[in-house]
């Protein structure tokens, strides 16, 4: 048992965690209703919305922790009426708060070790790829690609173009893809990859994935896929400055067909199954899309904040009246 200021800190951390889990649960329910509406927004707005969405539980749980801190220590009686915490200066490790705290620490350590392990393996493979590739200055090859910087050419028959590397992202292209594309198609592919490079999409994806670790599987995957789709569509849109949507869409389908011919070599999991069709559709029939809904977002955040505060207070009372502490 811990008593005093340390107990207050541990209780506040427990409150923050409880808030974090409740917010994730509430968001997972809301996701079922709003996921289809996302398509109405422009890719940039969708990216911002998704970033706000995944950051929201962390920001709001911090606000909630601060609220409880003021309710416990401050002279604000009104706050105490909205939500309050019993035994603020006593913390038992063998209580449900203790189990919540220790479970959270164990989960975070497990998840972070997985992320670090993947990062190390990924970085090692990229270093080896760099050693075995040739740097090509693409601007010298084409007058129509002034915005495209260097890329790494890989001697492989597999058709692939991708940006990899979290801290120092680089663009990779295989000979297998390069020799089957026209100069214009190659320029489209490189400009798309350049867009990923300049936006630091690999890092952005990595951080986004980290923020998603507490969502249950049924919402985690679609949230991440929506984000990946938004990033791809933003990169597609940047190519539209120098190419038509039809040309970009046609190149996308051509590359997908080339990759299909290598299906036996890749172990497919059907990731992004809908991405190509959705991206083509966006490119050839660009309609008016909604922009970031600031007011609705603020109202939703306020609603989430107050529902979570009430749920924390209610669940605390419920658990402690049903079970011994």
């Amino acid at each position: 048992m811990v008593v005093g200021d340390w107990a207050l800190i541990l209780n506040l951390v427990s409150i923050g965690l409880l808030g974090l889990f409740i917010l994730h649960a509430l968001q997972s329910i809301f996701w079922l209703f709003i996921s289809e509406k996302l398509a109405d927004f422009s890719p940039k707005s969708r990216k911002s919305l998704l970033l706000v969405w995944v950051a929201c539980p962390y920001v709001l749980s911090t606000v909630i922790t601060l609220f409880f801190y003021l309710s416990i220590t401050g002279p604000f009686e009104l706050l105490d009426e909205v939500a309050h915490w019993h035994h603020a200066y006593v913390f038992h490790f063998d209580s449900w708060h203790g189990f919540l705290l220790l479970g959270f620490i164990a989960y975070i350590v497990w998840q972070l070790s997985k992320v670090i392990r993947r990062w190390v393996i990924h970085s090692s493979d990229i270093k080896s790829l760099n050693l075995l590739s040739r740097v090509i200055s693409s601007t010298s090859n084409s007058n129509s690609s002034p915005e495209v910087s260097n890329y790494y050419l890989l001697d492989s028959a597999k058709p692939a173009a991708f940006v990899a590397g979290i801290i120092k992202p680089r663009c990779y292209l295989t000979n297998g893809l390069k020799r089957q594309l026209t100069e214009e198609e190659l320029n489209i592919v490189l400009q798309h990859e350049q867009a990923h490079l300049t936006s630091n999409d690999a890092l952005s994806k990595c951080l986004f994935n980290l923020l998603c670790i507490f969502y249950p599987g049924f919402t985690k995957k679609p949230i991440k896929m929506s984000y990946a789709l938004a990033l791809e569509q933003i990169a597609d849109q940047k190519v539209l400055k120098s190419h038509t949507g039809f040309d970009v869409a046609a190149t996308l389908v051509k590359v997908a067909k080339l990759q299909n011919s290598y299906k036996t070599d890749f172990s497919y999991c059907y990731f992004g199954s809908e991405h190509i069709a959705l991206r083509v559709n966006e490119l050839i029939t660009p309609g008016h899309k909604k922009s970031f809904p600031i007011i609705i977002s603020l109202i939703s955040l306020a609603l989430l904040l107050f529902s979570t505060l009430s749920v924390i207070d209610a669940s605390h009372h419920l658990i402690e009246s049903l079970f011994t502490h």
Binding site: W119, A161, F162, K221, K224, M225, E232, Y270
Partner: peptide
């Protein structure tokens, strides 16, 4: 990209795997 899909650390022009 392929085995964990949504956890991908790369950004590809075409999603390498497609069920189309």
């Amino acid at each position: 990209f392929i085995s964990e899909g949504e956890n991908s650390l790369i950004a590809a022009f075409s999603s390498i795997s497609s069920d189309l």
